[in-house]
Structure formats: structure tokens, C-alpha cells
């Protein structure tokens, strides 16, 4: 496997979706190629950063306006 092929299979590798043969070949390449190892490692960290990023509180006023819109809809239903 060359560097271009590692990139082609990168998403399947990081998502744990590679079959055993490809996995072994890809990991053999990683043992010998510093650049690919860094690309794999930093892409994994990129995914982890997004996965772990909890949503922030809503900006001021957003929830109040949502509640008001829902209350209007509820009152239309009840009418």
C-alpha cells in the first residue's frame, strides 16, 4: 500500500470499517511512514475534537422567542 491508498482508505480506517486484510496492510504502511502516521493521527484528533464539542447555551433571547412561537401555535390549536 502506498501513501495515496492510505488516504483513500482513511475514513474507513478511522471509522473501524476496514476488512482484516486491508487493515493489516494499512497498519504495516503506517509503521514505516511518518507522514502517513501524522496524517492519520491528526485526522483522528480532528474527528475527536468535533465529536467532543458539546453545544453551547443558546444565545440570549433565542429560547424566549422559541417559547413564544410555540405558545402562539398552542393557543391556535386550543382555539
Amino acid at each position: 500500500m502506498n501513501c495515496q491508498e492510505v488516504v483513500r482508505w482513511l475514513t474507513d480506517y478511522l471509522d473501524g470499517e476496514l476488512d482484516a486484510t486491508l487493515l493489516e496492510t494499512l497498519e504495516a504502511h503506517l509503521r514505516d511512514c511518518d507522514d502517513c502516521r501524522i496524517v492519520v493521527d491528526t485526522t483522528r484528533k480532528t474527528i475527536e475534537l468535533y465529536c467532543r464539542c458539546e453545544p453551547l447555551p443558546l444565545p440570549p433571547g433565542v429560547r424566549e422567542r422559541l417559547d413564544a412561537a410555540l405558545a402562539r401555535r398552542l393557543s391556535q390549536r386550543g382555539a
Binding site: 482513511l10 475514513t11 491528526t42 485526522t43 480532528t46 468535533y50
Partner: peptide, 14 residues
């Protein structure tokens, strides 16, 4: 798309 998106973001986060 996921592959390209992840690689683009990774590069920008460098």
C-alpha cells in the same frame, strides 16, 4: 465527502 471534509478541516486546524 467525509474523507475530503475531514482532510480539509484537519489541514485548516494545523
Amino acid at each position: 465527502r467525509l474523507l475530503r471534509a475531514r482532510l480539509k478541516i484537519r489541514e485548516r486546524l494545523n
